[in-house]
Simulated assay, not measured.
Amino acid sequence: MPSQPFRSARLEARISPDALSMVKRAAEIQGRSVSDFVVTAAQEAAQRTIEETAIIRLSMEDQRALVEAILNPPEPSEALRKAADAYKRLVIESR
């Protein structure tokens, strides 16, 4: 059995009696303490949330538009040319 990481922070939460009953039952089924079950479940949910924000999901139409823009980029607009010139003056030439 892996050693438990050092725990120094405390988390408190209010929970309905029905939800607590369900959590206790699930923890019992897994042979874990309620505290361990809740911490593990929270960590897994947090990891999923973080991973989901790092993944960009595109429809097939959006995928095609992205590939088309990469393979055949449009000519830069006047605003983009001005922004590139300003960047060169401010960042590159000031080094």
Rank of each mutant, 00 (worst) to 15 (best):
R7D: 10
R7S: 12
R7P: 02
R7V: 14
S8L: 09
S8P: 00
S8I: 01
S8Q: 11
A9N: 11
A9G: 08
R10W: 05
L11R: 08
E12M: 09
A13Y: 11
A13K: 05
A13F: 15
R14Y: 04
R14W: 05
R14L: 08
I15P: 03
S16G: 08
P17Y: 02
P17D: 13
P17M: 04
D18N: 10
D18S: 12
D18E: 15
A19N: 11
A19T: 15
A19Y: 00
L20C: 07
S21H: 06
S21C: 10
M22L: 15
V23C: 02
V23Y: 05
K24R: 13
K24G: 01
K24V: 05
K24I: 03
R25M: 10
R25P: 02
R25A: 14
R25N: 11
A26N: 08
A27M: 03
A27G: 05
A27L: 04
E28Q: 14
E28P: 01
I29S: 06
Q30L: 15
Q30Y: 08
Q30R: 14
Q30K: 14
Q30F: 07
G31V: 10
G31D: 00
G31H: 04
G31C: 03
R32W: 09
R32Q: 15
S33C: 02
S33N: 01
S33A: 05
S33W: 02
V34I: 10
S35A: 14
S35H: 05
D36P: 01
D36T: 14
F37K: 00
F37Y: 15
F37E: 04
F37A: 05
V38T: 10
V38D: 01
V38H: 01
V39R: 11
V39E: 05
T40A: 14
T40N: 06
A41G: 07
A41L: 14
A41Y: 06
A42H: 01
A42Y: 01
A42E: 04
Q43G: 04
Q43V: 13
Q43R: 15
Q43I: 13
A45C: 06
A45D: 06
A46E: 04
A46D: 03
A46T: 06
Q47A: 15
Q47T: 10
R48V: 02
T49M: 09
T49K: 12
T49W: 08
I50R: 15
E51R: 07
E51F: 03
E52Y: 02
E52P: 02
E52R: 14
T53V: 07
I55H: 04
I55L: 10
I55V: 07
I56L: 08
R57F: 08
R57Q: 11
R57A: 05
L58P: 00
L58Y: 08
L58R: 15
L58V: 11
L58A: 13
S59I: 00
S59H: 04
M60Q: 13
E61R: 09
E61L: 08
E61W: 04
D62A: 15
D62V: 00
Q63Y: 10
Q63N: 06
R64L: 13
R64D: 10
R64A: 13
R64Q: 14
A65G: 03
A65Y: 03
A65H: 09
A65N: 10
